[in-house]
C-alpha cells in the first residue's frame, strides 16, 4: 500500500519511462510538479502536447521539422548534389553545426541490427533510393556510427547503391582535432595510422 496519492504515483511512473530518468529523479520531478504554481504546470503541459503535435519527421529527409518538407530540404543555397546519410535526426544537427557540410541530409532512422531484429526494410533505405532517382545527387556521404552495426550498415549501403553509379564515401577515422595524441585511445590511434596521408 502506497501512502502517496494515486495521481502522483501515476505521474512518477510516466516520468520514469523517459530516457535518462531513474526512479529517484522521477520522484523529485513529480513532487516538484504537484507543488508548483498551476499556471507553470499548465505551460509545461501545453508545451509538451504542442511540441508533440507540431514536430514531425520531414517526409523527405527524416529530420525533425514543423514544415513539410523541412527547411534544410528546401534551402536552395544547399548543394543538391551532395547527400549525407545519418542514423538519427539529432545527427543532422551535429553535422549542420559544423557549418562545413553544405549538402542535404537523409536520416536512416537506425542501423542494421540482426540481434534487435532491425532489417533493411525497417530503415529508410527505399526512401533514399527514391531520392537518388528524383534528385540530382552525385555523392552519398555515409556518416554512420563506427561500431560493428554501423560499419555493416555502411557497407550494406555501399553494396546496395553500387549499381546506381553514384559516388559513395564515408567519414574518415582519426584523431580528435586540436588535442594531443594522449587523448586518443589505442584503437583510434591505430586507425589514424592506417588512414595517414601525405602532407602537401
Amino acid at each position: 500500500m502506497s501512502a502517496l496519492p494515486e495521481p502522483l504515483v501515476d505521474l512518477m511512473a510516466a516520468l520514469g519511462r523517459l530516457p535518462g530518468i531513474g526512479p529517484r529523479t522521477a520522484e523529485r520531478l513529480a513532487l516538484h510538479i504537484v507543488q508548483a504554481d498551476p499556471a507553470e504546470v499548465d505551460r509545461l503541459a501545453t508545451a509538451l502536447t504542442t511540441a508533440r503535435l507540431r514536430v514531425k519527421a520531414c517526409e523527405r529527409c527524416g529530420a525533425l521539422t514543423e514544415a513539410q518538407p523541412c527547411a534544410l530540404c528546401t534551402d536552395d543555397r544547399r548543394d543538391a548534389s551532395l547527400l549525407c546519410v545519418v542514423e538519427r535526426p539529432v545527427d543532422v544537427l551535429l553535422l549542420d553545426k559544423t557549418g562545413v557540410f553544405r549538402g542535404r541530409f537523409h536520416v536512416l532512422g537506425g542501423k542494421l541490427s540482426p540481434i534487435n531484429g532491425v532489417e533493411p526494410e525497417d530503415l529508410r533505405i527505399r526512401e533514399l533510393e527514391l531520392r537518388l532517382t528524383a534528385e540530382p545527387i552525385r555523392e552519398v556521404v555515409l556518416a554512420l556510427p563506427t561500431d560493428v552495426e554501423g560499419d555493416a550498415t555502411s557497407s550494406y549501403l555501399a553494396r546496395r547503391l553500387a549499381p546506381r553509379g553514384v559516388r559513395v564515401t564515408r567519414l574518415a577515422h582519426g584523431l580528435p582535432a586540436g588535442t594531443g595524441l594522449e587523448f586518443a585511445d589505442e584503437l583510434t590511434l591505430s586507425r589514424a595510422l592506417e588512414g595517414r596521408r601525405p602532407l602537401d
Binding site: 532489417e119 555493416a152 557497407s155 546496395r160
Partner: peptide, 15 residues
Amino acid sequence: QSLVDAMAFDSFTQE
C-alpha cells in the same frame, strides 16, 4: 532467420 537478406549478410561477414 528463415529468410536471410544476402546483402546484409555479406556486410556483417565483411566485418
